[in-house]
Design a protein around this nucleic acid. Sequence first.
DNA 1: TTGCGTGCAAAGGTTTTGCATGGCA
DNA 2: TGCCATGCAAAACCTTTGCACGCAA
Lengths: 137, 137
Amino acid sequence: MNPRSKYKTKQREILLDYLESVPGVHITAGDVCEYLKKQGANIGQSTVYRQLESLVAEGIINKYIIDGNSPACFEYVGTDSHADPEICFHCKCEKCGKLIHLHCDELKEIQVHLFSEHQFKMDPMRTVFYGLCEQCI
Amino acid sequence: MNPRSKYKTKQREILLDYLESVPGVHITAGDVCEYLKKQGANIGQSTVYRQLESLVAEGIINKYIIDGNSPACFEYVGTDSHADPEICFHCKCEKCGKLIHLHCDELKEIQVHLFSEHQFKMDPMRTVFYGLCEQCI
DNA sequence: TTGCGTGCAAAGGTTTTGCATGGCA
DNA sequence: TGCCATGCAAAACCTTTGCACGCAA
């Protein structure tokens, strides 16, 4: 469950606090660095990238790639992995950036289909549907 | 429809011939450059990138962004714009990194479902299913 | 002749990595 | 004490851009 967070460092805590304070907002690694510098917490950019990578692996934040050349976006999604057995799917609007959480049984059939027909075990936590939301269509 | 191809240059023709010869295959800009160099057709990489961009805009090839850091993938889809463009879905193995592309009608129903039930217009070009492939399960 | 396409090199920006140091447990 | 995390700088990487030249129409 916690592939990387063996140590609880000051830097990790600061970073996590910040991400937690802006839920539902997508932030780039550069944004994080800039913000931290303003706060006087001078954390190296390598650390920021490495911690973000860890947090993604732990499922605490999500990583979104909207466009190949723009920097990746991160977003806090919480730590309640143990409490929620419900599988959650994500839709990300490419235009306004909105993240939509879906709890839909029908979508679970994708998993079944991919597994039985294509021998691919899809991971709903990591998979994001990109497209346009209701308002942006 | 043809935003850029005002001139029909030798380079464009060579590039298009190559792409046309490998339909349904994912190719990166780097792959193209390497192949062309082997063939003795020394086309500058700027030209490759610029032509690929044009061809995407014209709808002759598709561009897929699988992962933020890996290079973008291109795929020939043909010039018959009136015909039904073949939609391609992608599965990426989180373990071995293998990319599987699927041409599956059943998966198209996801699009329909997401649109009719959740008012979300999913973009297959950008959406990637993450999980584990047959060998890595 | 006109001006788009090309090619080279260099820049651009994001992310990763090497290595010595520092800090958590 | 042992090992992981950090930080700095530099590298790596893909892609874009500036500019002069060449070529299609």
